[in-house]
């Protein structure tokens, strides 16, 4: 009787990346085929829409969210610190940026205004992440639960502001603030809803985080902390400080993105659920699709952004919302299979 066994393997990183890339592309192909076969939708129509989405710059608006947040989360996850609170950290960044733009004189000053708002946003996100970080570092409180719960606290806090004291005078009773001053707005690329400056900032973090994690002593220690805290501690690097640093960095990047959402996209503070819109959770997937490798994060963020955007534009004509969800579900499932294939192999012996 032939025997089948699943055994671990170590693929070289480049080959592992190729396997994933191949699976990502093949996944889209299989998804298109199965939709046209099962639902009888013309394959060409689906292909056109899918390929179109991947090539259209509209999805950059999402890339600007997913890339920095994914990079920040990778820092925490490398240390096996489960920060699930990017959503709330984004919202708090948005609140801080809205405050600076609307309620301080800085909001009326060009360049300085947006910079100050983004700085405040980063700080707010970092501080929001720091609370669970400190609880974890000093009292060993499970950070997965605290970060998760703080997402909803952030929603509520933001909602209190837009329904209450910050509600705008010219918004006809909608739960939102007035528009931020023009000086604070980040200008769009003509015809699209993203700013080139935001894109530049997002991409600039790729080498920064990569060098930090792989070329510095502290970054290296962060990557080792999760599996061998004692070995890191005995090398003279404080574990407590590493935990706090990891939460600070991942919170700051999420906060920055939240601030950018206000200055670049919404241009006013809206309810928390609309700011985060679940993107903080999707970013977790972005981080893991890149295998927590900052160098692969742009690719992973691009892929997820395109699919995220696809879900919105696909709901036209015969391609309804359920079809779009089916499509994306299928693509991600195939991607999971590829991750399995790159880590394990199946051996058959007679």
């Amino acid at each position: 009787m032939p025997k089948i066994a699943v055994v671990r393997r170590d693929l070289p990183p480049t080959l592992s990346a190729v396997v994933r890339l191949g699976a990502a592309l093949a996944g889209i192909g299989i998804a298109i085929l199965s939709i046209s076969v099962i639902l009888g939708v013309d394959a060409w129509t689906v292909t056109e829409r899918v390929v179109g989405t991947f090539l259209r710059p509209d999805m950059i608006r999402y890339l600007i969210v997913f890339l920095p947040v994914g990079l920040g989360l990778a820092v925490a996850y490398h240390a096996r610190l489960w920060n699930l609170g990017a959503e709330g950290q984004i919202v708090m960044g948005a609140v801080a940026a809205a405050y600076v733009a609307l309620f301080t004189p800085l909001g009326e000053i060009r360049v300085v205004g947006p910079l100050a708002a983004l700085l405040a946003a980063s700080l707010a996100g970092a501080l929001w992440a720091l609370l669970p970080g400190i609880l974890r570092a000093y009292l060993n409180v499970n950070e997965a639960i605290t970060t998760l719960m703080m997402n909803y606290v952030a929603y509520s806090l933001c909602n209190y502001l837009v329904y209450g004291p910050w509600r705008g005078r010219r918004v006809y009773g909608y739960p939102e603030t007035d528009l931020i001053p023009d000086a604070s707005k980040l200008q769009w690329v003509h015809g699209y809803s993203f700013s080139p400056w935001s894109l530049v900032i997002a991409i600039a973090f790729v080498p920064v985080i990569y060098l930090f994690l792989y070329k510095t002593r502290i970054g290296t220690a962060l990557r080792g902390y999760g599996s061998s805290p004692a070995a890191v501690e005995l090398s003279g690097i404080s574990g407590t400080r590493l935990i706090i640093l990891a939460f600070f960095v991942s919170g700051a990047l999420a906060g920055l993105v939240g601030g950018n959402e206000i200055l670049m996209y919404h241009r006013k503070l809206v309810p928390g659920e609309k700011i985060g819109a679940g993107m903080g959770f999707v970013s977790i997937m972005v981080a893991w699709l890149a295998d927590l490798n900052p160098a692969l994060m742009p690719l992973s963020a691009y892929y997820v952004s395109a699919l995220h955007y696809l879900r919105m534009v696909m709901q036209v004509g015969e391609l309804t919302e359920p079809v779009a969800r089916f499509f994306i579900g299928l693509v991600f499932m195939l991607l999971l299979v590829s991750i399995f294939v790159s880590k394990y192999k199946v051996v058959i012996r007679k």
């Binding site: 290296t220 990557r223 080792g224 599996s227 061998s228 005995l234 090398s235």
Partner: peptide
């Protein structure tokens, strides 16, 4: 420590990275 597996070395890192940890 006597047990390099758990407390002496970070198994997930490369030889060089472990040395980098030790070297200020």
């Amino acid at each position: 420590p006597e047990d390099p597996f758990r407390t002496g070395v970070v198994l997930d890192l490369t030889i060089m990275e472990n040395i980098r940890l030790f070297a200020t």
